[in-house]
Write a protein that binds this DNA or RNA. Sequence first.
DNA 1: GCGACCACCTGATGGC
DNA 2: TGCCATCAGGTGGTCG
Length: 279
Amino acid sequence: MPELPEVETVRKNLTNELLDDKIENIEIYFSKMLQNTTPKAFVDLVSNRVIEHIGRIGKYLIIYLGSLQEDTKKVLIIHLRMTGRLLVINDNTKVDKHLRCRFFLKSGRYLDFCDQRKFATMALVNKGEEFKWKGIALLGPEPISDDFELTTFYKGLKKSKKSIKAILLDQKLVCGLGNIYSDEALFRAGIHPQKAGEEISQQEAKQLFSSIKKVISEGIKERGTTFSDYRDSYGNKGGFQELLQVYGRARELCFICKNPLEKIRVANRGTTICPKCQK
DNA sequence: GCGACCACCTGATGGC
DNA sequence: TGCCATCAGGTGGTCG
């Protein structure tokens, strides 16, 4: 499922391919993915706009669309959720069976938005309003940015009775982590995912802070993790799955202590831990 | 206000 | 072989 490293990989791919290309038309096959507009209005407002810039906030992909009229620039906010994919298509010989929306580009290519489970979303706002969009407005700092500070992180943990895993998935204290990277970060920090935030020591917070930065940086470097569904914009798999130490390895042996890993449920999510290494 | 839980959704998998 | 139940998970909404 796309977390920060996967979305960042897609952003880089799309930037390489689509910058300055023009969206000439759009066909929408699943209108429920549009959060704040009708299909007709969406097509009217997005068609004939140039892709000026592609950014990212947490797991949200932000596509800036230019216009001849400076005051009507639009921003497309996309969340891939679990199975969303944005694919640059050069020919129409093989259409994905989960195609939900197709952008027809001036270059003759298509940008296909595919989503097996129909959870992915798109919203269209005026430029400048993207940071106020629900879901984005309350996001915490990016783990690889200077805004992510140990002191603030530790204070945030101490305020919460929630499990540390629930806190990491919540996106408010730090954004971009999902099930895979939170399990990996907690294992590397030696922290049990069910431990309450308020019970995390300063030393544990420091270890977790470092491991979050490390797994996210490694994930970006490896172009994300492909566990089942994720593909980048060229249809390629990521590489971080080769570096996973716990996620998806239940019943296999821990690389550190050689005891079997266990799968438990924390924050309503399947969670893989080493019961010996994580306290 | 906070935390826990559920719905959304489809494909894969396991059990019978 | 075929059917059915369960599981996977990010986010927003609801409930206590």
